[in-house]
C-alpha cells in the first residue's frame, strides 16, 4: 500500500540488446507534460555518439537529450552518453564518470540505479527492459530495499530475456508487464499518485 500513495519524483530505466525499440515504445506512451524526469542507461557501442537521443526524440513527445556533466535534472528524458557511467548526485544533478566497467558495461544500469537511491530514496520508479546480461539486477534489489517501485518487462515479450529475468530473480519486483503496457501503466500510476497526494 505504501507505494501507491508515494509521490514519485523520478523514473530510471535500464535496457540493453533490443532496447532502442523497447525504449521507443515506453516513451511514446507518455505525454509531453509527463511530470517526472526519466533517466536512462542503454548499453551502446562506445563510439556511438549521441544518435540514441536523436532517435528517441523523434519517437515521442518528451524532450530527450544526452546527459551533460553537472546538469540539473528537470522534467526531461536524459540518456547516458556512450562510454561513460551516468550517476545522479544528491542535489539532483547528473554526473559522469569513466570508472571501470561494471557488469562489463559502461554506462552500467547498476551504477545509475544505485546512485539514484541516494538522490530519490523511496520516491523512485525503476524499469528494467530487454537485455542480454544481468546489469541492473543489483540495482533493483537495492531500490526495493529502499522502498522504491520496480517494473520489469515480461521476459517473453523481450528481444533478449536475460536482463528482465535476472531482475525478477534478484528481488520481489512490483510489476511484470508486456512491453506495450509499460508506458500506459507508468503514466496511470504517476497520475494516480499525484491525485491521491492532493487529498493528503
Amino acid at each position: 500500500m505504501k507505494n501507491e500513495i508515494n509521490l514519485f519524483e523520478a523514473v530510471v530505466i535500464g535496457s540493453s540488446a533490443g532496447g532502442i525499440h523497447a525504449l521507443s515504445s515506453v516513451l511514446a506512451a507518455l505525454p509531453s507534460e509527463f511530470p517526472l524526469p526519466i533517466i536512462i542507461v542503454q548499453h551502446l557501442h562506445p563510439h556511438s555518439d549521441s544518435y540514441l537521443a536523436h532517435i528517441l526524440s523523434t519517437k515521442c513527445e518528451l524532450k530527450v537529450k544526452q546527459a551533460d556533466e553537472k546538469e540539473t535534472i528537470t522534467n526531461a528524458v536524459y540518456i547516458a552518453p556512450p562510454n561513460y557511467h551516468l550517476l545522479i548526485e544528491e542535489d539532483r544533478s547528473l554526473s559522469l564518470s569513466i570508472d571501470k566497467h561494471v557488469n562489463f558495461a559502461r554506462p552500467s544500469v547498476d551504477v545509475l540505479f544505485e546512485s539514484a537511491i541516494y538522490a530519490y530514496q523511496d520516491k523512485l520508479i525503476a524499469i528494467i527492459l530487454t537485455g542480454a546480461n544481468n546489469d541492473g539486477s543489483q540495482g533493483v534489489k537495492n531500490i526495493k530495499e529502499n522502498g522504491g517501485y520496480v517494473i520489469v518487462q515480461e521476459p517473453t515479450t523481450a528481444e533478449a530475456d536475460a536482463m528482465p529475468k535476472a531482475a525478477i530473480a534478484a528481488t520481489k519486483v512490483d510489476k511484470i508487464l508486456p512491453l506495450e503496457q509499460i508506458g500506459p501503466y507508468l503514466l496511470a500510476m504517476v497520475n494516480h499518485s499525484r491525485r491521491v497526494h492532493r487529498f493528503l
Partner: peptide, 9 residues
C-alpha cells in the same frame, strides 16, 4: 569531489 561516484568507490 562529486559524491555519487566517490561513494561507489
Amino acid at each position: 569531489y562529486s559524491k555519487a561516484s566517490l561513494k561507489r568507490r
